[in-house]
Design a binder for these strands. Sequence first.
RNA 1: CUGGGUGUGGCGCAGUUGGUAGCGCGCAGCGUUCGGGACGCUGAGGCCGUCGGUUCAAGUCCGAUCACCCAGACCA
Length: 407
Amino acid sequence: MKRSKSFVKTLRAAPKDESAKSAQYLIRAGFVHKEMAGLYDFLPLGLRVLENIKSIVREELNKIGCEELQMTALQNPEPWKKTNRFDDQEVDIWFKTELSAGGELGLAPTHEEPITTLMRTYIESYKDLPVYAYQFQTKFRNELRAKSGILRTREFLMKDLYSFSPDEESHEQFYHQAEAAYKRIYERLGLGDCTYETFASGGIFAKFSHEFQTILDVGEDTIYFNKDKSVVLNEEVLLPEVLDELGVKKEDLKSARAAEVGNIFTLKYKYSEPLGLEYTNKDGERRPVFMGCYGIGISRVMGVIAEKYADDKGLVWPENIAPYKYYLIAIGDEAEKLAEEYEAKNSETILYDDTSARPGEKFKDAELIGLPFRLVISDKTLADNSAELTNRQTGETKLIPLSDLKF
RNA sequence: CUGGGUGUGGCGCAGUUGGUAGCGCGCAGCGUUCGGGACGCUGAGGCCGUCGGUUCAAGUCCGAUCACCCAGACCA
């Protein structure tokens, strides 16, 4: 991609209404644009990051037998009324609207009710189970306070997976597979060494839910962990009986701020019962479907990664999710000619800064945008038949022969 | 929702006791520059968040309202 072809420009100054480092850089570097509090547009670069995150999540989920679909954001209130979750007293973050023909609609904050209802059409027999269905979907939550850029917004992209199993045993088996898949996902996203599976409140149907928490100063949660971090729990379950059960003592625990990047729940029959999702077992008996749900806030994860890796010069993207691999800068006519060729053949991995800006400005932009590598070719390097490759994360620079360049 | 703060060209800001709305960046043109956010000249761009009030006169004073930020509470 050539930068001159994009409508997006980098900004020199950070907007004053953002304080989170990630939000400032994401806006300055042109990954997102703020519409209003808690509402962000994803610009071309930002969208590519989102898509890369989605691809990793999709690959790992498909590996464990999950199937992708896409449901509607506009919601029929009926199923929600059956679980008493359309009531603003029960769920206070609804955005609601009306049909012009009359009748109320909700904008989905999550999808347990609709997908449970949907599955009534397809799940009839034990032979139809299990089902593992997920989607990447825009969720709407009327948060009292949006904050920290794309970390907590009112409209956001979420991956939500729902599991439908015949019984608890079968569910547990999948639940562990999902846990393992989540760990692989965070590993691939570059958050592996700072993300912990955490005990959190699970409501009345399971003792705990499990959250995946990434240690982060601007995170909204406080987590407690023991010395080797084998036991990590959310502050919300820091209770004497829980500590007993997990076999840890409060005085041995340390705390840290963290951002929730995933949450997996055993739902049991919470939704299948009121919504009548049943199947017939081998003995001809009608049984409720045993459910679980598994979320990852895709756009939040992007914010967490941005926040985690950014340094004083700008963003630093892990290679797996970077929008492009190389930021190409050419200095001099010969170099520009060569750069044109490279970009034409590798427009998906090279972001070529072919703008008329001076080199210094391009170097600053390269650092701000934070692609894994900066590639500079100039008359100087060409005289040597080489290009200069700089690693954004380590700052390490080396000259490599042009013949060794692989995009 | 509670407490605090802020609304003035695209972005960042200044604007005194009320008296013709300014600066920097960015943008356009010309010229010089060209490996770390260059420089000179010229120029375009603003109902000062909104509504109402006081006044000969309001960015400035008064009232209301909306929005945004931070901390906290909340987070099914």
